[in-house]
Amino acid sequence: MAKILKIYENNPQESLIAEVVKTLQSGGLIIYPSDTIYALGCDINNLKAMQKLAKIKDVKLEKAHFSIICNDLSHLSNFTKDINTSTFRILKNNIPGPFTFIMEANRDLPLAYKGKKTVGIRVPDHSIPQMIVEKLGNPIASTSIRDEDEIIEYSTDPELIAEKYDHLVDIVIDSGYGENIASTIVDLTSGEPEILRQGKGIL
């Protein structure tokens, strides 16, 4: 059964964040809030956890497109090729924020991402995922929690999310109702920003 931790954005308890980090380090899966919607996440360097994440999404890991959640721009060079000035300016002006930026991947990707030519980088403007990544010491892999309802595309109630994913994840962070608008996906691989999905973020 998933453990529900009530952690709030304005004043995240360090002891609870530490519990989340310990769970991630041991290969656990979490559901966490962001500046857009609730999401599923795991330690990007834990292959077994990544495989569990892919299984929940009913996709083969090598075909999965999980975002990489960072807490600032410092992790970018670990995953992406050299960034030109105009691309860096776009990132600097919009990070943290409700965007997922598609960028060219380098060869130093974690095992689960090997062979991918592009990666989606995200830095949510939300203290909880930022603290988790900071305390973990490396990014987390992440994917949105979608709803089967045709009208409500994304689940917003953490209690209902906890019910649905009770036996699939280890921790659900209850931070109150989330939003139901996802991040804006921006492709930066060509040098010119191309919006692949318009979400909450406005470039």
Rank of each mutant, 00 (worst) to 15 (best):
Met1Val: 13
Lys3His: 07
Ile4Thr: 12
Ile4Arg: 01
Lys6Asn: 13
Ile7Ala: 01
Tyr8Met: 13
Glu9Tyr: 06
Asn10Phe: 05
Asn10Thr: 08
Asn10Val: 02
Asn11Trp: 02
Gln13Ser: 11
Ser15Gln: 11
Ser15Phe: 09
Leu16Phe: 13
Glu19Pro: 15
Val21Lys: 03
Val21Phe: 09
Lys22Gly: 12
Gln25Gly: 15
Gln25Ile: 02
Gln25Ala: 07
Ser26Met: 07
Gly27Arg: 01
Gly28Asn: 08
Gly28Pro: 10
Gly28Trp: 03
Leu29Asp: 14
Ile30Met: 12
Ile31Trp: 08
Tyr32Gly: 04
Pro33Met: 10
Pro33Asn: 02
Asp35Lys: 08
Cys42Asn: 12
Ile44Tyr: 00
Lys48Pro: 04
Gln51Asn: 05
Leu53Asn: 07
Lys55Ile: 15
Lys55Gly: 04
Ile56Asp: 12
Val59Pro: 00
Lys60Leu: 11
Phe66His: 14
Ser67Glu: 05
Ser67Leu: 12
Ile69Cys: 11
Cys70Leu: 14
Asp72Phe: 03
Leu73Lys: 09
Asp82Ser: 15
Ile83Gln: 09
Ile83Pro: 10
Asn84Thr: 07
Asn84Val: 04
Ser86Asp: 14
Ser86Met: 12
Thr87Pro: 02
Phe88His: 06
Ile90Leu: 15
Ile90His: 09
Lys92Glu: 08
Lys92Asp: 03
Asn93His: 08
Asn93Cys: 06
Asn94Phe: 10
Ile95Tyr: 06
Pro96His: 13
Pro96Leu: 13
Phe101Met: 14
Ile102Lys: 14
Met103Leu: 11
Met103Ser: 07
Glu104Leu: 14
Ala105Ile: 02
Arg107Trp: 10
Leu109Asn: 00
Leu109Ala: 01
Leu109Trp: 00
Pro110Cys: 03
Leu111Ser: 12
Ala112Gly: 02
Lys114Arg: 12
Lys114His: 09
Lys116Gly: 11
Lys117Gly: 15
Thr118Asp: 10
Thr118Pro: 05
Thr118Arg: 14
Arg122Lys: 13
Val123Ile: 15
Pro124Lys: 04
Asp125Gln: 08
Asp125Lys: 13
His126Asp: 09
Ile128Asn: 07
Pro129Met: 12
Val133Glu: 00
Gly137Trp: 00
Asn138Tyr: 09
Asn138Val: 03
Pro139Cys: 00
Pro139Asn: 02
Pro139Ala: 00
Thr143Arg: 08
Ile152Asn: 15
Asp157Ala: 01
Pro158Ile: 13
Ala162Trp: 02
Lys164Glu: 10
Tyr165Arg: 04
Asp166Ile: 13
His167Tyr: 08
Ile171Thr: 14
Val172Lys: 03
Val172Asp: 05
Asp174Glu: 01
Asp174Leu: 01
Ser175His: 03
Gly176Cys: 03
Gly178Phe: 06
Ala182Pro: 03
Thr184Cys: 06
Ile185Asn: 11
Val186Glu: 14
Val186Ser: 07
Asp187Gly: 05
Thr189Asn: 12
Thr189Met: 10
Ser190Ala: 10
Pro193Glu: 07
Glu194Met: 08
Ile195Leu: 01
Leu196Phe: 12
Gln198Arg: 03
Gln198Ser: 11
Gly199Cys: 09
Lys200Ile: 06
Gly201Tyr: 08
Ile202Met: 09
Ile202Asn: 14
